[in-house]
Design a protein around this nucleic acid. Structure first.
Lengths: 135, 135, 135, 135
DNA sequence: GTGGTCTAGACCACA
DNA sequence: GTGGTCTAGACCACG
């Protein structure tokens, strides 16, 4: 199975960050599971046609966030260990992201109920993408 | 009334982006309303003790997003936009931000109910800052 | 004032890690205080005769650990914000380091009281180096 | 009796180093005593499911540190060393490790009394693992 | 001028 | 063969 990552070099978002985002998304969606092995740094670099250092940077950030663990000489693997951050910090991080979504929603003319509906929809989508990957 | 903006030079988020965020936040909360006049670039630069270029950059972005309108020789004013984007596009933009929050929440060990609770909390916070502005 | 860092390229310990260690040591000892400005990446690179990327790597790690904060376009500054890690994790980290010291002490024939004495001595030294820097 | 070693492939710490640490820990705790025989390289490699080279590397380092002694054709044995280093050097080595713990503790917001408490706790833990080995 | 990102390519430790 | 470290040098966003 290939891990499918799609980079947009024009997006302004750093390449390594796009990789981090997409791996985290796949883990949250269940497409990648605990103990799954990621492509090696060199493989993914060749696949995405970017410098191996860029991939290494992304993998190191994923490891710092405890999304993956790297076993020397073997490769990198998804792990599901809990975040070492304090609960208050974790909630603040999510609250900040929710805040941004709410402000943006207001400017786009989407009210509270609309945001609630979108939230429920995305929760379902994230859950279902797991089933999709088994079809 | 002064427009109160608080910058964190350490947040990693660019200063101009923080200004954009906070102006949009104030509009979302009702602290700023259509036709309200913003401080001039120079005034705000002196107030926040930052480079005027930084303020100008922020105002330009706000104008691009149709949050404010600059009238030659008169200053910048909040305009009630009415987003020109289609409903589907607008929902997709908010859904994308919600998605990021959900992915992050998953990795921080915060489940669906936790995110719902945070959403309700932030909705209340946004509402309250509106009430404060009515005092 | 120069920030004095001494690298041993033969020590096996990565250069960037040696820089991180020494900055943290100086902060703990009071030689560097909140709001003190660090040399720029390029300055320190020229000073230590290493690649600027190596310094940048060290500074980024210090920022992740909330030892310094970097203000875009201005430089890096010592900050004294608390660790975002949960208390249990923080205690475990220190306990692990203490454990290593205890095991090493045993193999070197130093018993519990000896280690306690060394601890008290180092506590005093760390405190005093602050006074020394003011002479 | 088997020598129980538990490796964490995710810890970042090299496997061979973890083996060295744990053997030294067992000697410090009294679980292993002078003249005790260690498993052969092949036995331990099979037991831990790692490359024999890794075990050999660990044993070589233990021998360099005079923790074990390899007797041709007989195997490896714990030796009660008696470090050849001068007292001043030995104290300096432990002091350096304590220093690192203190610097880390400072940055994690753990004060002197907290470190003292952790030290006493770890001393008790080391002692208890010795008692367990007497059962 | 400041740090951040990315490329290219070398060397080393580890398994 | 795997990732980690370091060098060298380019380009860009930010202030």
């Amino acid at each position: 199975m290939d891990m499918i990552i799609r980079l947009e070099s024009a997006s302004g978002r750093p390449l390594y960050q796009q990789i981090v985002d997409q791996v985290k998304h796949m883990v949250a969606a269940g497409t990648l599971r605990s103990e799954d092995r990621l492509p090696t740094v060199r493989e993914l670099a060749a696949d995405l046609i970017v410098n191996p250092n860029t991939i290494a940077h992304a993998y190191q950030q994923l490891e710092r966030e405890k999304v993956i663990e790297t076993r020397r000489g073997l490769g990198s693997f998804i792990c599901n260990s809990g975040s070492p951050l304090s609960k208050a910090v974790r909630i603040a991080m999510v609250a900040d992201l929710i805040d941004r979504a709410l402000v943006e929603a207001h400017h786009l003319g989407i009210e509270a109920d609309g945001v609630r509906a979108i939230l429920e929809d995305r929760l379902v989508q994230l859950g279902r993408s797991e089933e999709k990957s088994h079809v």
